[in-house]
């Protein structure tokens, strides 16, 4: 690092003393020249940031702000929005039977999905961590569903597989069970959607696998010598040390599950049925927005969802201090 040439002799302003270095590593002379270079570098930085900033504003911030405005209006897309104040929100709270139903359906969906995914992904990760031959293959195999699971194609496939003449019933038949249509029966349709969501546990599993690898073998060896069996090792060593990752996955999965749309939409063919049994919050939102052309009402729904997700996440964060152990540095 070269020292600067010293303060410029300026008749007007006293220049700041000393040398400086810009983040780019360039040494900068003090005084006027330094300020100019600094300004240039800042400008360059902003120029590089513009594409990302444009996306942030154009695709995220501005539409979100507009939707907040729309939530106080009556807007059917085909004509200009008219201001209605809190009417949409009032209707949500008191007057919408299908809305309440969608709340229950969504809570059920999240309430089953998140724990099931956590349990499955952790179990499979523990099994795979024992180091079977072909670990990489199994890991990829389990991961693939999470890549394609949220797609329309898989949703359609699921509809077929669990339909009345689907493969699943053939499988049941092998064991002597009577099949039925799992996707068009209000008692089972939501379970089918949950099953599809749980099938994509691979992403969480890969994260658990990585975390398991971090636990030193010597912990388990010491435990072996101390006489712990597999279950005790899991419960007293593995699980406590995994709590940060469990927490992470739990937050991610919760947010994801609340936003889940494609699977329920495709399996119910856009109806959220039968009899609104798969009417997730997002599906109902879609119906009000795009089928009934009530953008204002749907925007209000979207904002309520945002607040709800934020509250749930905050709840999980608050609970973390009771059960998540972070390694002390």
């Amino acid at each position: 690092m070269k020292p600067g040439p010293g303060p410029e002799k300026s008749a007007v302003t006293p220049a700041p003393q000393g040398a400086a270095v810009l983040p780019s590593g360039r040494a900068v002379p003090a005084g006027r020249a330094g300020t100019n270079i600094r300004r240039l570098e800042n400008r360059a930085a902003y120029m590089f940031l513009i594409p990302w900033l444009a996306g942030l504003f154009g695709i995220t911030i501005i539409p979100v702000t507009v939707s907040l405005y729309l939530s106080f209006t009556d807007y059917n897309v085909l004509s200009a929005p008219t201001w209605v104040g809190l009417e949409n929100y009032e209707k949500l709270i008191s007057g919408d039977r299908r809305y309440e139903n969608s709340l229950w359906v969504t809570l059920k969906f999240v309430g089953y999905s998140v724990p099931l995914v956590l349990v499955f992904s952790l179990t499979v990760a523990v099994v795979l961590n024992r180091g079977l031959a072909g670990l990489a293959i199994y890991r990829s195999l389990f991961y693939v569903p999470s890549l394609i699971g949220a797609s329309v194609g898989i949703g359609l496939l699921w509809y077929q597989v669990f339909g009345e003449r689907g493969v699943f019933n053939d499988l049941l038949g092998l064991f002597g069970f009577e099949g039925r249509s799992w996707v068009t029966n209000p008692r089972y349709a939501l379970s089918t959607v949950i099953a599809l969501n749980v099938w994509t546990f691979g992403a969480s599993m890969v994260i658990f696998l990585a975390a398991l690898r971090q636990i030193p073998d010597s912990y388990y060896e010491a435990a072996s010598i101390d006489g712990a069996n597999g279950w005790q090792k899991f419960r007293r060593i593995t699980l406590p040390l995994l709590t940060p990752v469990i927490f992470f996955n739990m937050v991610l999965l919760t947010i994801q599950s609340f936003q889940s749309f494609t699977q329920a939409f495709v399996i119910s063919r856009g109806t959220g049925g039968p009899v609104d049994s798969t009417l997730l919050y997002t599906v109902y939102l879609y119906q009000r927005a795009f089928q009934h052309l009530e953008m204002g009402y749907a925007s209000a729904m979207a904002w309520v969802l945002l607040i709800a997700i934020a509250l749930f996440t905050a709840l999980i964060f608050w609970s973390a201090k009771y059960w998540v152990f972070y390694g002390d540095k």
């Binding site: 339909g163 009345e164 249509s181 996707v183 068009t184 049925g273 039968p274």
Partner: peptide, 11 residues
């Protein structure tokens, strides 16, 4: 047809 089939057949 059964209720389930009825729903499936429509769409």
């Amino acid at each position: 047809d059964s209720a389930e089939v009825m729903v499936a057949d429509l769409g």
